Amino acid sequence: MARPAKTQQPDYGAHLASLRHAASLSQQQVADLVGVRQATVAAWERSATPPRGEFLVPLSETLAVSLEVLLQADKRKSARHRGPASKLENLVAQATQLPRRRQQRIASLLEALIAEEAKAS
């Protein structure tokens, strides 16, 4: 049985934990399916921010939700402090409506472009 939390979960961590519970998965099961340690999943659930980009697609597939739903708690929080969505945010929102295979392809392309830009900087 898990220990009770000493502090309140941040918005994103609570959102991720609720998605995991809705999928009827334990932290260990999510960890095995995503390819990380259980402690990593526990840390994500205590975090105020989403996991690194490389884990978002596998995590969304494991939890059987779109990337938009996976990132929803974070978007609601940031939407209170900003203006309209950027062009990139709109493109990501459109990509989340595509089948998973196409989402994975787009994520791979983005990762390659970001790595290329990081090298150029």
Score class of each variant (00 low, 15 high):
Ala2Trp: 05
Arg3Ile: 02
Ala5Trp: 04
Gln8Lys: 13
Gln9Asn: 02
Pro10Ser: 05
Ala14Glu: 01
Ala14Val: 01
Ala14Cys: 01
Ala17Cys: 01
Leu19Glu: 07
Gln27His: 09
Gln27Lys: 11
Gln28Phe: 10
Asp32Ile: 14
Val34Phe: 09
Val36Arg: 03
Val36Gln: 02
Gln38Trp: 05
Gln38Val: 05
Gln38Tyr: 05
Gln38Ala: 13
Ala42Val: 03
Ser47Gly: 00
Ser47Leu: 02
Pro50Asn: 06
Pro50Thr: 04
Pro50Glu: 05
Glu54Met: 10
Phe55His: 15
Val57His: 14
Glu61His: 09
Thr62Gln: 07
Thr62Glu: 06
Leu63Lys: 06
Val65Trp: 08
Leu67Trp: 13
Leu67Tyr: 08
Leu67Met: 15
Val69Pro: 01
Val69Thr: 15
Val69Phe: 00
Gln72Lys: 12
Gln72Tyr: 13
Ala73Gly: 00
Asp74Asn: 05
Lys75Ser: 06
Arg76Asp: 08
Ala79Lys: 02
Arg80Phe: 03
His81Pro: 01
His81Arg: 11
Gly83Trp: 00
Gly83Cys: 03
Lys87Val: 09
Leu88Gly: 00
Asn90Trp: 04
Asn90Leu: 14
Leu91Arg: 12
Val92Glu: 09
Val92Asn: 05
Ala93Ile: 05
Ala93His: 11
Gln94Asp: 12
Gln94Met: 13
Thr96Arg: 09
Arg100Thr: 15
Gln104Asn: 12
Gln104Leu: 13
Ile106Ala: 12
Ile106Leu: 15
Ala107Asn: 10
Ser108Leu: 14
Leu110Asp: 04
Glu111Cys: 06
Leu113Ser: 01
Leu113His: 01
Leu113Trp: 01
Ile114Arg: 11
Ser121Gly: 07
